[in-house]
């Protein structure tokens, strides 16, 4: 993973910052400056609430480089309460625990690493909503 890439995406990765169109109300994750629906420019930043539900998921047995810490891991598309979808990993779940429609919430985690001495990327994963003994998103 590239350091500049992770750095410039840090707000989206670390705190689910996206953007919202003041005119038509549409939300975007990751954020962007122009609304694709109504063409309004200068969209404002929006911090997503971090809750949503599972739209679809898979248990990945053959990971790409940097993602082989835990096999299998659960990859999912989560639909945020505000509307946008994102691809993410689900944590604090075992095979058989996950269902489409299941409520989930933001969880700050390690995403990938480049061996023992390489760059570690942190960012969002999602866990079952109201999962105990974890800090809530602020």
């Amino acid at each position: 993973m590239s350091v500049p890439r992770t750095w410039r995406n840090r707000r989206a990765l670390y705190s689910l910052e996206g953007s919202k169109c003041q005119k038509c109300g549409k939300y975007y994750f990751p954020g962007r400056t122009r609304c694709l629906d109504c063409n309004t420019s200068g969209l404002e930043n929006h911090n997503f609430s971090g809750t949503g539900k599972v739209a679809t998921y898979s248990w990945v047995y053959t990971p790409p480089k940097g993602f082989n810490n835990r096999i299998p891991y659960c990859l999912a598309i989560v639909e945020l309460d505000e509307g946008p979808k994102l691809t993410t990993q689900l944590v604090a779940v075992e095979e058989g625990d996950v269902e489409i429609g299941m409520p989930v919430e933001f969880s700050f985690r390690k995403i990938s690493s480049e061996g023992d001495e390489g760059v570690i990327t942190y960012g969002f994963k999602f866990r079952p909503k109201n999962y105990p003994n974890h800090l809530k998103k602020k």
């Binding site: 891991y73 691809t87 990993q89 969002f124």
Partner: peptide, 15 residues
């Protein structure tokens, strides 16, 4: 936003 968070091609088609 896909590969960077752990997606693979088989996984996307699995979704």
């Amino acid at each position: 936003w896909e590969l960077g968070v752990g997606a693979t091609f088989p996984a996307l088609y699995a979704l």
